[in-house]
Design a protein around this nucleic acid. Structure first.
Length: 435
DNA sequence: TCTGGGGTCCTAGGACCC
DNA sequence: TCTGGGGTCCTAGGACCC
């Protein structure tokens, strides 16, 4: 990408997304303290402004603030992710009316490219206010808009739009004077910068870099030597050098995870297997929706780390598959096979999950090497069965195949495995099992 | 008693091959 | 038997994000 070309981004973000969705359908929740809770009503995952003002932090366990909640009549709701996903889609549909180039970054945030749109509006602040009005009217959700010349700056502008009432929920950073921006950045803690988390902000503090302005003034090469290439880009982005481009087409996931904490502690493998089966069913659905095949399955279990009085155990293992698949039954077999390997009796388990790994496109042709008695032949195919068919068509029926390997990712784990006896039956070929 | 569920990228180090 | 360096792939772990 040509970074010297002037870019302009808007970050549109729904305020307190989950709480705002609930309020859109239940107006009585307006102007009172509301939280939305995670699975099993465990943790606070969304807070209204009234709750934030009480000092309730993101992710705190609900039981820890029950007294506070009673005292201030906080309403707690179980989460309804189907509703939030639907509302999110409606917001993104509205946003597409404003720019042909949009990156849906998360359930409640999108980046818009504003390049070339300047002729359409008196100012980009006008554009931002129009977005707010439209989404409020058509979807019923409140949003803030940050506008700047890099994604990182537009995130900061959005933060300013939220925190500084004088901006009226839209901050066009690129329209402010250098002095004004400098003053704002001096007042914002460095940990607010996108990409600066807990660990890095601690280290920055020890280097006496406390504000956004101080990080912006750093030499990016110096920052690179301390923190690596990602932070270097962050500093460049703070200085208006756009390093992160708009990712308009959402790429297929590289891994798919489904995991849950159990409502109660589980002891037997049968109970855990039942949970694992339902996670895998869901994971396989996700896999098919994105039209991918999975080449290995990871399954894990763990006890409750918060129960110091219990014996602790956690483990997981990778189960490679014979060939890439999206078949729920095969994936499920693999997960359960893995589970029996890692399960240990005598522990109280709290959580389990499955991860589909080494995903590839359904249509992707793989290079598969087939070992015969003395030679290796390579054929292109997207699965082993059609690979052996191709080999047979070259050498005639019943070619003796004694091993197999693949070239990408988990496949190479199986390289050079050789069957104990000659066979043409794939199921008799050895499979490498991690752990 | 009760403590979320997803994801991504980068780096370092080991195994293996030539 | 001893000795060597570079490239690549893989894994684990750590950091970040919402």
């Amino acid at each position: 990408m040509n970074t010297s070309e002037k870019q302009l981004f808007a970050l549109v973000d729904v305020n307190n997304m989950y709480v705002s969705c609930e309020r859109a359908f239940n107006p009585r929740l307006q102007n009172i303290p509301v939280v939305v809770l995670s699975n099993n009503d465990g943790c606070v995952v969304a807070r209204s402004n009234e709750v934030k003002a009480l000092g309730v932090k993101m992710g705190v366990p609900w039981f820890q603030i029950k007294d506070l909640a009673k005292q201030h009549n906080i309403i707690a709701l179980s989460s309804n992710y189907t509703l939030y996903g639907d509302m999110s889609n409606r917001v993104m549909t509205e946003l597409r009316e404003y720019s042909p180039h949009i990156e849906v970054y998360s359930i409640d945030e999108s980046f818009l490219s504003l390049n070339g749109l300047n002729g359409l509006w008196n100012s980009f602040t006008t554009l931002g206010q129009d977005i707010r009005t439209t989404i409020s009217r058509n979807v019923g959700l409140p949003v803030c808009v940050g506008i700047a010349s890099s994604k990182t700056l537009s995130k900061l502008a959005n933060h300013i739009a939220k925190k500084r009432i004088e901006f009226n929920s839209v901050c066009e950073l690129s329209a402010l004077s250098t002095n004004h921006i400098e003053a704002l950045f001096q007042s914002i803690d460095v940990s607010e910068v996108w990409g600066v988390g807990r660990k890095i902000s601690e280290q920055l503090r020890s280097m006496n870099i406390n504000s956004v302005a101080e990080l912006k003034a750093c030499s990016s090469k110096n920052i690179r030597s301390h923190f690596g290439v990602v932070m270097e880009r962050t500093v460049d982005e703070l200085n208006g050098i756009s390093c992160l481009s708009l990712e308009e087409v959402s790429k297929a996931k590289q891994q798919i995870i489904v995991s849950r904490s159990f409502g109660k502690l589980l002891l037997t493998i049968d109970e855990i297997a039942e949970a694992t089966a339902s996670y895998m069913t869901r994971a396989a659905e996700k896999l098919r929706i994105q039209k991918s095949l999975c080449q290995s399955v990871y399954v894990f279990i763990q006890t409750n780390p918060f129960r110091g009085q219990d014996k602790q155990y956690s483990n997981g293992c990778v189960v490679p598959l014979i060939e890439p698949t999206n078949d729920t039954r095969i994936l499920l077999d693999a997960a359960l096979k893995g589970l029996t390997q890692i399960y240990r009796a005598g522990y109280w388990y709290k959580k389990s999950g499955v991860m589909l790994m080494a995903l590839s496109s359904e249509n992707q042709q793989r290079q598969i090497s087939l070992f015969q008695t003395s030679t290796t032949d390579t054929v292109k195919s997207n699965n082993l069965m059609s690979a052996i068919d191709k080999l047979n068509s070259i050498y005639g029926r019943d070619t003796l195949v004694i091993g197999r390997s693949g070239v990408d990712k988990q496949w190479s784990m199986k390289a050079e495995l050789v069957s104990p006896r000659y066979t043409t039956n794939w199921n008799e070929l050895p499979i490498a099992l991690a752990n």
